[in-house]
Amino acid sequence: MSGFFKSSIGRKVAMALSAFFLMFFLLQHFAINMLSVFSPDTFNEVSHFMGTNPLVQFALQPVLIFGVVFHFIMGFILELKNKKANGVNYAKNNGAANSSWMSRNMIWSGVAILAFVVLHFIDFWFPEINTKFIQGDWSGTMDGVEGFRYYEELVHKFSNPARVVAYVIAFVFLALHLMHGFTSAFQSMGSTAGRKQTLQNIGKAYSIIIPLGFVVIALYHFFNH
């Protein structure tokens, strides 16, 4: 089996498996964030559960970080190997004649998403780690806020127009990445021809609805507060 993951197809499968995990994560992240629009109290409750539950914090969170890091590093490794396999570049290459922009530029939409992940970690994840693991405050509360602090923090972050613009741009790249990535992951896993159209339809819906939903959440909090 170790030989399998060293082969070109094994690496594709590994990329696809980490992609499935990240897409599932994105779905639950989207569902929880959507709560902030409809019910701030429920959003606070669920955020506190996710932020303090030992299974989430000490089992799922490390797996998620591994998944993110693996997907990025493997993506860069494969890109470098593929560049090496190219040899001399064409003087004229009409890529648009036979493939989509999204499929040819996964590395660039990926780099844009990586930049966003760094920004997102600085915005939310590092302060959260600092509060809980360095300061040792697991209460989920803060001075001047009644109840849990999570909704207040979210609203505060999205009051800055520069951040909202950066997030919207990042979600456009996420949508472009998913438009190819969703069906590509299934193809890498060897999905059969009969399921192709269904998967393409689900992929299109997923890659538009999820990023658009995140954009709507960001804009909702920007304009409502």
């Binding site: 197809i9 594709k12 190997k81 090496k84 493939s99 989509s100 499929s103 190819h180 590509s184």
Partner: peptide, 22 residues
């Protein structure tokens, strides 16, 4: 066959679908 393909230095498929078109 896959081992030989990798040994020859061909790249990794990213499912762009260009091959099928051409």
């Amino acid at each position: 066959m896959v081992a030989q393909m990798d040994l020859e230095g061909f790249g990794n498929c990213t499912n762009t679908g260009a091959c099928e078109v051409e």
